[in-house]
Design a protein around this nucleic acid. Structure first.
Lengths: 328, 328
DNA sequence: CCGTGAGATGACAACGTTGTCAACGCTGTT
DNA sequence: AACAGCGTTGACAACGTTGTCATCTCACGG
């Protein structure tokens, strides 16, 4: 910038004004400056600007895994909203590791992001309190934060799960299994609650025998199906608590050539092309990301007065065949 | 930092030394400083550090679409390598729009990223020359840059496509169609070349009637299939030039209850669960991302002397059923 | 003809950090 | 006892930008 000023024969400040598109600059000077900028290939240094202005035009996005379709759609939605605000996005994957989550979040803060969007992996987020007090707003997505109050965007896990079970009940099933993720994961717990409530509302006793809670893996899935299908009155339907579980169950069912009515929580690409088509309770990761980003930018803009908000995004049941298999 | 220095009763520089883990600091002072840091909730300001040091510990990743599984896997691989280098990743989607690509790339440069990884959308990248001369290395992935020389990581599109066609030939097919993306997309062109070469090596005349080049959409796919299946000697097999096309073709085939031997270029989640399983020429987005990041960090580390490199990542043919349907 | 105000321009400090260099105290040698 | 050498510490400038404020020019009205 100094060089540009020298080349154009003006002061530093005038170059700054031109670069920032301020109106009160003489047209001749402006063109001289623009010419020098083009000639020298000048590009403003954002670090210096950030330092001076105390804000970075940057937000941090902390996901479980950037490569997971659910999060990558969420991520894209966040990016679009950020773009509208002239903001760039740092994205990082916590890999479900609380320490890594913390490191990433604090690294984002060190970079002086204007705000954070977090899919929490850990159960304690008090480490963010100093940062939030220092003016970095945080919005949590998909799962609530551990031990602090903050804005959240959640899926209607309970309602969606309930709806999925009711759908199976509506097709005559009475022995309905639930295979979900590890119980310490918030969404897994909520979805199990929905399953339970639906059964109870229908006057069906909840039975531990029909429930599996474990991270999806070929062996845990095989075990879960063994338990569901053994005994005198085997399950005739199952609700899968997340898409990885759903896929895992589908593979195992295919291997056994077994058939089971199935509703998956969270949609899966190509679900419509399977035989039968996969019935799902679809979440809307795009809507979640957009809602989170919008709320975050509202906070960044200074709307920091109100109480913390919780936005719940609804689910949509998409019948494609697997959930409509009748009970025998 | 000034406050920390005051609280600990030492100079600014000593705090700096402690924060940076330099060894030559008295243990008593060090603990005093650490204590003050904890007490005040101090976090180093990365903008100031970047400004002073002239580097940002940051790279820019420019993709077509963060939400596309291929790119999101690539993205995750880049993130992992960046993590090893203590570097954060800015990710942005060009949405296949050259202007948006340019804006994003230059915004990254303004942020003084240490390097760029780009999946190019546009055909001209000379706008990067000043930046590259200014010391920001760039690695192109999946497609070559437009009108500049630079490092690239490419899939073996030609070889993979050839291999896919040979696979179909091996199962007795002689009328093999090709449905690919718009011809101006580099990968689409290469894959068409591979298709052509495989046919020619087998002594089969190339026929325009069997080839469609268009962005995948329900109507273009329906048209393409119409053309393939009409006439006295319809196609008995098809090579799909990318995964969106593959999915689109699968949907259309399901709608028509038509059967066609099919090999898809690029893998698709759940391909193994379809009936028949989907045979694909699988790319390895993770390997591409990792290779790109590694090469980039090599360049960042100063290995800027050598000529530009082109790394070609091989493909893998995964037979699952659809590509092994015999010719009638 | 002078005073006033509006608009353009520039000088300068400040943002928070780190590299450079000088000063200091201590140990061990001559 | 003087001094070299080493390790620790701090003062200060610099990174590139922008906010503040002062200065300057010009037009206009009294």
């Amino acid at each position: 910038m100094k060089d540009v000023a020298a080349a154009a024969g003006v002061s530093l400040k005038t170059v700054s004004r031109v670069v920032n598109g301020e109106s009160n600059v003489n047209d001749d000077l402006r063109s001289a400056v623009l010419e020098s900028i083009a000639e020298l290939g000048f590009r403003r240094n954002a670090s210096a600007r950030d330092l001076r202005q105390g804000r970075s035009g940057t937000i941090g996005l902390l996901l479980e895994d950037v490569a997971d379709p659910f999060y990558s759609m969420l991520s894209r939605a966040v990016e679009e909203v950020a773009r509208e605000h002239g903001t760039m996005v740092f994205a990082g994957s916590s890999a479900e590791d609380p320490d890594r989550e913390r490191d990433l979040a604090l690294a984002f803060c060190e970079r002086r992001v204007d705000g954070l969007i977090i899919v929490p992996a850990g159960t304690s987020h008090s480490y963010l309190l100093p940062e939030m007090r220092a003016g970095i707003p945080a919005v949590f997505v998909d799962r609530p934060p551990g031990d602090i109050e903050a804005d959240m965007i959640l899926t209607d896990n309970l309602g969606g799960s309930r709806r999925g079970v009711e759908h199976l009940l509506g097709h005559g099933h009475r022995r309905i299994g639930f295979i979900g993720d590890a119980p310490e994961i918030y969404t897994a717990g909520e979805r199990l609650r929905g399953y339970r409530e639906a059964l109870e509302s229908a006057g069906i006793a909840f039975s531990d025998d029909l429930v599996t809670q474990a991270p999806p893996s070929p062996t845990s899935t095989a075990d879960a199906l063994d338990r569901l299908l053994e005994g005198p009155s085997p399950a005739t339907a199952v609700l899968c608590g997340n898409s990885r579980t759903t896929v895992s169950v589908l593979r195992e069912l295919a291997r056994r050539s077994a058939r089971l009515a199935l509703v998956g929580f969270d949609d899966v690409e190509l679900g419509d092309l399977l035989q039968p088509g996969l019935t799902v309770v679809a979440q809307d990761p795009g809507a979640m990301g957009a809602a989170a980003a919008r709320l975050l930018f509202q906070r960044i803009a200074g709307d920091t007065a109100g109480p913390t908000q919780t936005v719940t995004i609804g689910t949509r049941l998409i019948p494609r065949g697997s959930g409509e298999l009748p009970a025998p």
